[in-house]
Nucleic acid binder design. Structure first.
Lengths: 259, 259
DNA sequence: TCCTCCTTGTAAACTATTTCACAAACATAT
DNA sequence: ATATGTTTGTGAAATAGTTTACAAGGAGGA
């Protein structure tokens, strides 16, 4: 056993790493100090071998016959994802979505520090959004030359997205979380992740059966209704698969569980 | 040429279908009536063969030597995704994120009709959220027995997500858009899509280089920095690749382009 | 010590998705 | 009519990602 990853890490692996991290943080809070890959599967629904394979891209983390040390693994994954240090984030677009993201407590919890908010609506510029003042997006290069944020959240209308993305790149942004449903054109060193609600809803909608099947005509489209999300999880038996540990975790927080 | 799809359609194909749909709607508004797969690639960054292959799961849509009729293709894709008819949607969780989603204009534009909002916070129940009243989540089964919504947006805190999901399934919900960063356990007929901001941000964060590389020690983790998003788009040459058509599209809407 | 049990890390098999490459379809010009 | 150019739809090849299967490491008891 030995191989320090050099090749590429699949994106799905990185996504799962974030899931593991959150899961491990929860375990740590329940004072669990060791966990096996089989137990991870039982509690998260992610295949045990997948878990081990994901980790294997980065080195060796467990002890055969024992499992993984929760707090050690947690901090090593945090380090891999570079969320062990504070990452500065700027937000562009102080609309509904943008405002919601500013207030999202998960950001701070994971060391993402929102340091500036921008918009191009003169009615908004200068006003406060939570603890930050909304700046003119035209000033982003200037402002970020002091802040040195490298991650941006792009939450502007579709038709403005590409222009704002160009500004972001010019301002030294390296990584963009794009909520507009278009593919941004950016230089090769800039990494983009897209999130599209409509895309997600459309995939859900596709999997529904039509209520009123009065038009049995062009049946060409009525297919694939048994598709399965790669994300959904079906317990293998009737039992609910929540073990003591997990129930404990739920109990711990259940008193604050009002949405 | 002939084959009416019977097998499974890849999820990535469905996701792209939503992208095509939105793109075609834009084209239609610019009075473009025909488009080739090569032109789709030029304007969206999605490989032309991929576009054709995606469509091929559902039948034949184009004419060799000509291309695709924009409005025909648009309506056929809408039909495939079942966004040609209004789909009722309920929202659970009237927090920041939930509120933002209610106000998202893209929902209505794509025929997703938000018909009810639920929460379990007694301070919120009974109050209005935009044009809807916030209902007690405990009443969801009763209320949805009249509404018959089949899609739910789940925007509650992580620790409440599984319990609410159980309620949703019991209330006849078939499809869930889950914003909590956990894998929901649901019956096999329920389709789930997960959206996790933290996961997205973590993937972005991973791809950043560390600023202060003072600790050249355990270098095991400092790898993979040249990963490429499958979503990002790099123009093949210096030119900006926006042709007249696309520029026209931008111009049409640019006056409303303030975020 | 030796035996048994458990669990990791990973090579190999398998499955899924994307891209290539080309025959067939159609348009247009001569 | 025939030639030429364009573009589709799709097998087949290539690539990417997941799961299986198992050798080897380590714990713990007799």
């Amino acid at each position: 056993m030995a191989h320090i990853n050099n090749g590429k890490v699949p994106i799905p692996t990185l996504e799962r790493l974030a899931t593991y991290l959150r899961f491990l943080i929860d375990l740590e809070q329940c004072n669990v100090d060791t966990i096996s890959s089989a137990e991870v599967e039982r509690q998260t629904g992610i295949n045990a071998a997948q878990f081990r394979k994901d980790l294997s891209y980065f080195g060796e983390f467990g002890k055969p016959g024992v499992g993984y040390n929760v707090s050690d693994l947690q901090s090593r994954i945090a380090r891999i994802l570079k969320v062990d240090v504070e990452q500065k984030v700027v937000l562009v677009g102080a609309g509904n979505l943008g405002s919601a993201l500013v207030g999202y407590p998960g950001l701070k919890e994971h060391r993402f520090n929102l340091v500036a908010v921008f918009d191009n609506n003169y009615g908004k510029i200068g006003k406060p959004l939570w603890n930050l003042e909304i700046n003119d997006v035209a000033a982003i290069k200037d402002i970020n030359s002091k802040l040195h944020a490298r991650i941006a959240i792009l939450a502007v209308p579709t038709n403005a997205a590409q222009r704002v993305a160009d500004l972001l790149v010019d301002a030294g942004i390296d990584a963009i979380l794009n909520f507009a449903p278009i593919l941004l054109r950016v230089p090769a060193h800039v990494f983009v992740r897209n999130v599209s609600f409509l895309q997600e809803l459309a995939v859900l909608s596709y999997h529904l059966t039509r209520d009123s099947d009065s038009d049995a005509g062009t049946a060409k489209d009525r297919i694939g209704q048994n598709g399965k999300s790669d994300n959904e999880y079906h317990p293998k038996s009737e039992e609910h698969l929540l073990n003591d540990l997990h129930l404990a975790a739920s109990k711990t927080i259940i008193s604050e569980a009002r949405s």
